[in-house]
Simulated scan of single mutants.
Amino acid sequence: MPARDSIHEIVKEAVIKDGWEITYDPYVISYGERFLFVDLGASSFIGVRQGNKNIAIEIKEFRGQSKIADLQQAIGQYILYRLLLNQVDPERDLYLAVSEATYSDIFSEPIGKLAIAQIPLKLIIVDLERKEINTWIPSRPIEKSSSR
């Protein structure tokens, strides 16, 4: 199993605060003879008729010497995971979780905006200090109930 990013526990706490139940840590994708590890799997109950909404979350720090190299690696991993999830768990949405600083550094630039729009790339932007989700891109997969 690969090493976890240092922000793993903070992102996990933020996801829980946002009303999700962590169901896998990590979420293992088995395909052929290969096993891949998405950082988290989470579920949220959205009602008797609609059931659960399931997501997978890949956490990335972007701490390398090159933000572009980090972006290339993250996009490649995201696309591979999405392809595999489409085969083994097509109802589960995939999100890339990044810090506000990472979002500001690369995803708010034209190259980041292009990746978000054209892949399309789903993001969770986390405030690391407050340990809370700041923004879901494109949007939160389900609306929070007023009881949360």
Results as ranks from 00 to 15, higher is better:
K53R: 14
K60M: 08
E61Y: 01
I59R: 00
I59F: 13
A56G: 02
Q77D: 14
E58I: 01
R92F: 11
V48A: 03
V48R: 12
I55S: 00
K60Y: 09
D93Q: 14
I68M: 13
R82N: 15
R49M: 09
S66Q: 09
A74H: 00
Y78L: 11
I79F: 04
K53V: 14
I75N: 01
R63L: 13
K67L: 10
I57K: 00
L85G: 08
K67M: 10
V48S: 02
I68Y: 09
I75C: 08
P90G: 07
L83W: 06
Q87Y: 12
A69P: 00
F62G: 11
I55R: 02
A56N: 06
E61T: 07
N52Y: 15
N54S: 07
Q77G: 06
Y78D: 01
N54M: 08
K53Y: 03
A74W: 02
L85F: 13
I68T: 08
I68L: 15
L71K: 00
I55T: 05
D70L: 12
L80C: 03
I68R: 11
F62A: 15
Q77L: 12
V48I: 05
Q72S: 10
I75H: 00
K53N: 03
L94Y: 02
R92N: 09
Y78A: 02
D70G: 11
I68A: 08
I75K: 11
V88H: 04
L85V: 07
G76S: 09
E91L: 13
Q65H: 06
Q50L: 14
G76Y: 12
V88N: 10
G76A: 10
I79Q: 06
L83A: 11
L80T: 15
R82G: 02
L94M: 11
Q87I: 14
Q65M: 05
S66D: 14
N54I: 04
R49N: 08
L84D: 05
I57D: 03
A69K: 13
R92Q: 08
Q87L: 15
A74G: 04
Q72A: 12
Q73D: 13
A74T: 11
N54Y: 13
D93G: 06
I68H: 07
K67F: 08
L85I: 09
S66N: 14
D89F: 01
E91C: 04
I59N: 06
L83H: 08
L80I: 15
R49H: 05
Q72C: 00
E58F: 12
D89G: 12
Q73Y: 10
Q50W: 04
Q87E: 14
Q72D: 12
E61F: 01
K53L: 10
A69Y: 06
L71C: 04
L83D: 09
G76H: 11
D70F: 03
Q65V: 12
F62I: 02
L94A: 08
K67E: 08
R49I: 03
K53W: 03
I57T: 00
G51N: 05
G64C: 07
A74D: 05
D70W: 06
L94F: 09
A69E: 13
A74K: 07
A74P: 06
I68E: 13
L71H: 02
I55Y: 07
Y78F: 15
L80D: 03
G51T: 01
D89C: 07
E91T: 15
F62C: 09
L83K: 10
Q50M: 10
Q50A: 11
L94W: 14
I75E: 03
